[in-house]
């Protein structure tokens, strides 16, 4: 799900560009350290492979077909940092060459699919290192759930008003898409392993299981939260109002003057929403940082 330009409000795309840019820099430094020099061309070629793979249709019941999205498969093959970088290259190419996804929204799309999506794919692979099939399926499932969920959240925060029924419908569709991606990822990875078991060998034992577990729990909360939000939007709204009510005095307190204008409602809402997003994203990033650092020591 590539968000085009003009769908996100300015604070949303600007913040996500600001978050994604240093994150990509960091990921590329990490990937460079991790990668054997012989695998450098592989990253680009596999990026082209993911593009081409999208031309191959998988039948998924009653006359419909789907195609591989690829984030989880790349993670299983390359490991998290190189996969995130490869996904970034893919998303940027889609935005510039194919006008699929916006340029200002590049940060958002990279954050959703290349950073959060790959992280969500990596965690189950790490946690279910012993049960590869489960790990592969969950990797596909959570990468899509995470990316689509974040995209939906960002659009909502940007003031795109979605009737609650439609919201529920789209989350349902995401879930179906996520199951399909999980199934395709599993089938393709298995087929590749049959050709040559060394090809899908991203080292899955790197990093601490504890941190992986904690981060994975955060991912679960986000995904479950998405389901909750879509099935009971009123509840979420009420939480939002409650937070607004209680957060306002806290924010304004140090400034003595209570009537200090905090800007129009949309600004406050999106600021609060963004803060939440950044907190979730930030803690996920911090967790994965420790997770990965443990591995190199």
């Amino acid at each position: 799900m590539h968000i085009p330009d003009n769908f996100l409000s300015t604070p949303v795309w600007l913040t996500l560009d600001g978050v994604a840019a240093p994150a990509v820099l960091w990921v590329s430094r990490r990937a460079r350290k991790e990668l054997d020099e012989a695998r450098i061309p592989l990253l680009g070629v596999l990026g082209a492979f993911v593009f081409a793979a999208q031309m191959v249709n998988f039948p998924v019941g009653v006359g419909t077909s789907a195609h591989l999205l690829g984030g989880a498969l790349l993670t299983a093959i390359l490991g998290p940092a190189p996969a995130a970088l490869a996904m970034t290259a893919i998303i940027a190419t889609q935005a510039f060459v194919f006008q699929d996804g916006g340029v200002l929204a590049l940060g958002a799309n990279v954050f959703n699919m290349a950073l959060a999506g790959v992280l969500a794919a990596w965690l189950p692979l790490r946690l279910f290192a012993g049960r590869r099939s489960v790990g592969l399926f969950l990797a596909g499932f959570f990468s899509v759930m995470m990316s689509a969920g974040l995209a939906l959240a960002e659009l909502t925060f940007s003031g795109i008003q979605m009737p609650s029924k439609l919201l529920a419908l789209s989350v349902g569709l995401f879930a179906v898409g996520a199951i399909v991606e999980g199934t395709i990822t599993l089938a393709v990875a298995r087929a590749i392993e049959r050709l040559n078991p060394r090809w899908t060998g991203a080292p899955v034992h790197q990093g601490s299981r504890v941190w992986a577990g904690i981060t994975f729990a955060a991912v679960l909360v986000v995904v479950l939260g998405l389901f909750a939000a879509s099935s009971a939007p009123d509840g979420v709204m009420r939480i939002g109002q409650w937070a607004d009510l209680h957060a306002r005095p806290v924010l304004a307190a140090p400034m003595a003057d209570y009537s200090l204008p905090l800007g129009p409602l949309w600004l406050r809402r999106s600021a609060a929403a963004l803060l939440g997003l950044c907190l979730v994203g930030g803690s996920a990033a911090a967790a994965s940082y420790f997770l990965l650092r443990r591995r190199s020591s």
Partner: peptide, 8 residues
Amino acid sequence: LLVLMAQT
């Protein structure tokens, strides 16, 4: 590295 990958 990113530019190289996009190039390849």
